[in-house]
Amino acid sequence: MFNVLSYIIGIISLVIVIPATIPFLGWANWIALPLIVIGLIIGQISSSDGGRNFCLVILLIAAVRLTLGGGIF
């Protein structure tokens, strides 16, 4: 159950992170980061690690985008 919940939170975060790759929308990653962390924590509680790994990939995408944009853009 926790794994499914982690996937759902990851998909919601992905919906926020994808448009945030557009220039001047990088601030949306700051909204997605807390959701991704919550998904990671819930995925860690789960017996399966698929949801956690999915959230880690989304976290990597958001972190790279924030790094390239200087944290805001």
Rank of each mutant, 00 (worst) to 15 (best):
M1W: 06
M1L: 11
F2G: 04
F2I: 00
N3H: 06
N3A: 06
V4R: 11
L5G: 11
I8Q: 12
I8M: 14
G10E: 00
G10N: 01
I11Y: 04
I11F: 08
I12C: 10
I12Q: 01
S13D: 01
L14S: 10
L14V: 04
L14E: 01
V15N: 08
I16N: 06
V17I: 15
V17C: 10
I18D: 03
P19G: 10
P19Y: 08
I22H: 14
P23A: 06
P23C: 08
F24S: 14
F24E: 12
L25V: 13
W27G: 10
A28M: 15
A28E: 07
N29C: 11
W30P: 02
I31G: 14
I31E: 13
I31Q: 11
I31F: 15
A32E: 04
A32I: 04
A32S: 11
L33Q: 02
P34I: 06
L35S: 06
L35I: 14
I36Y: 01
I36K: 01
V37H: 01
I38L: 12
I38N: 03
G39Q: 07
L40W: 05
L40C: 12
L40Y: 05
I41N: 09
Q44L: 13
S46K: 00
S46T: 01
S46G: 04
S47L: 07
S47I: 07
S48G: 12
D49L: 08
G51S: 12
R52A: 08
R52V: 04
R52E: 11
N53P: 00
N53T: 13
N53G: 04
F54H: 11
F54A: 14
F54M: 15
C55H: 00
C55Y: 00
V57E: 05
V57Q: 02
I58Q: 02
L59R: 03
L59V: 08
L60F: 12
I61C: 07
I61V: 14
A63V: 14
R65M: 05
R65P: 00
L66Y: 04
L66K: 04
T67S: 11
T67M: 11
G69V: 07
G69H: 05
G70D: 09
G71H: 13
G71Q: 11
F73M: 07
